[in-house]
Design a protein around this nucleic acid. Sequence first.
DNA 1: CCGGCATTTGTTTTT
DNA 2: CAAATGCCGG
Length: 788
Amino acid sequence: MEQNPDSDTLPLSQRAIAARPAPYLDGLNPAQRAAVEMLDGPVLMLAGAGTGKTRALTTRIAHLLTLGKARPGQILAVTFTNKAAREMKTRIGALLGETVEGMPWLGTFHSICVKLLRRHAELIGNGDLHLKPSFTILDTDDQIRLLKQLIQAENLDEKRWPARQLAHLIDGWKNRCLSPANLPKGEMAAFDGWGGRLYAAYQERLLTLNAVDFGDLLMHCVKLFQAHPDVLKQWQDRFRYILVDEYQDTNVAQYMWLRLLAQGHRNICCVGDDDQSIYGWRGAEVGNILRFEQDFPGAQVIRLEQNYRSTPQILGAASGLIEANSGRLGKTLWTDAEQGEKVRLIGHWDSEAEARWIGEEIEAFQGGHRASMGAVNLNGIAILVRASHQMRAFEDRFLTIGLPYRVIGGPRFYERAEIRDAMAYFRLMISPSDDLAFERIINTPKRGLGDKALQVIQMAARQNGVPLLEGARIVVEEKQLGGKGLVNLREFVNLFDRWRVDALDPDASHVELAERVLDESGYTAMWQNDKSPDAPGRLDNLKELVKALEEFDNLQGFLEHIALVMDRDEGDSGEEVSIMTLHGAKGLEFPVVFLPGWEDGLFPNQRAMDENGTKGLEEERRLAYVGITRAERLAIISFAGNRRLYGQWQSQMPSRFIDELPEAHIEILTPPGLYGGGYGTAMAFAGANAGTDMHDRAARADVYNSPGWKRMQARASERRTPKAAAVTIDAEAAAKFSVGDRVSHAKFGEGQIMGIAEDTLTIQFGTSFKTVKAAYIQPVGGDQDVPF
DNA sequence: CCGGCATTTGTTTTT
DNA sequence: CAAATGCCGG
């Protein structure tokens, strides 16, 4: 055990703790160990993919706690995703053997800022308008809705200044802690264009609503620290150690925030990899990591270069690709792992063939039919796509062949309309002054209270200086509305009065109350009567929401939790292939990784290049680097010659990144059913051509017009019918079913067979029809002949 | 005010 | 090809 430099100043009890062995240090390499043990003063860990960055960081926290250098509450540890925070907590727990009392200040930048702001809310604002600790957090949806209202109120041209674009613009400023007053010249033009008053109006409206948006969370915190040195001091003193994961992705606001807090003890430790900076579009500044030594004079810089994750082949392919970027710090990653498989490259006729091939390949891995790999567990396989719309092709395909999958980072549970509606009911019940919630649900379900009625209510509320729910009460009392609207509004107000009584009763069950709210408001009925195919799913989600409530003592606690953690734990429901975006895959690793859709325009994304030029292209390249380095043993890159875009088939060029891959680490595959001659031409271009004239678009076009490619197209389209897929027909599995049978499927639940063709069943699940292989279907009901 | 129908619009990545 | 928006007639 290293001598603790501070040991003289520590009380005996803590020196005793420090003298305990630290077995968790044994598994670290010397560089990691140095980083972990360099406890005092600023430290920057510059590290490549798979070098155990997060591991070093968590070990460091465990070490701090073991040595008694800080109590859990005195350590500030910041991550980018809630998932990473959760993971770190469990890892620290595991390192220390058992229960550490929770680390209250381990979380995302945003969640930690929420905590800080709740304690000092009253210091945010101006004059008599200030934030209350109970403030709500607007998500992008709310933000855009609010901006739309303001744009209308200011009589601005909605076409010229779409709310979503403004939201993005405002977000950008807040990420850099800029207000319109100190905008750089270039952006001033945009600001003047939309009338100047809008930003101020927006901020004021947020204050009156007692709400903040995502950007505010950070900006308010920074401004709070700048304007109140006493408050800053308090937190500087408190956080004796600060640790930051993924430092390369910090934006200016986060950087300022960190620097302010770290100036107390100057014990800040950041880890980051400049090659993995993929959030530039959200304001991330790689400059932050490059400036670290300047910001913290005397900082120790430690480079972690031994990779523990991937094989040399994978590492070689990724390193070769990223070398095309300029302005890197540069690292030499090495590993002592076995050489392994080359990165595979394969071109397909179209996106459907690509999805089909990947599906078959996964089944082969699963069955252990890939000799060099052995059987690969589905959990160890991931498909990483550039844009979320690419996921659908795989979902469709995997559903038909019955391959279990999980979409990570798809539409988030708490962002779905039905969940947000339900939460708006709860919010309004708990805090009757939540006007945003009121506006969301006043006419959901339809109560005959549309724009006009809302205007009357808003008027009444404004004149009396009360929230909308109170305004509604006044409207009812003074009968400012007529007919059905008035009756419904009275009922609406009465309902909330009744619910509120129960909400305040500490003995009443909040779960029952929540169910009642959804029932009595007619919200559940609304979806029950809805005949659209996704209505049953939405009802399920509502049930799941109510179930989630059970874990909390009351609704208040639930709502606060949700504000902090907008994602739901992904239940580990057994063996599933993961489908996610490249951004979502940050920090993860899988034995086998599929990287489909490497086509120019899609990846690198056209918009990224149009809007940010070379900078954009380099960020895309870093994304490609991140993608390849997620793989432990095998990475498989693919592209399609044709892809459907807005319902139109469009021919695609292979990604320029493909030509940048170092040939030595690449193996070119031939798709099934295609033979040397025809295929060779296209592939020659994809692989053998690497490095020659890769930006010559004309040359590429020639390849696609070549006889070989044409022949390949013809063959591919022959194979297009699903029956021809290379899966043997399992007629036996289908034989036990007949049309009309009740059956069940692991993913879709219960349904009824509507048709049978070979071993493929057409089944109605609820209101939607699916075509599924018989092997994945179970009979339901007692009168069935169940084989086996 | 609401439902239905026609049109148009858009798709990067996320706390 | 969707979803979102716009427009019209009850």
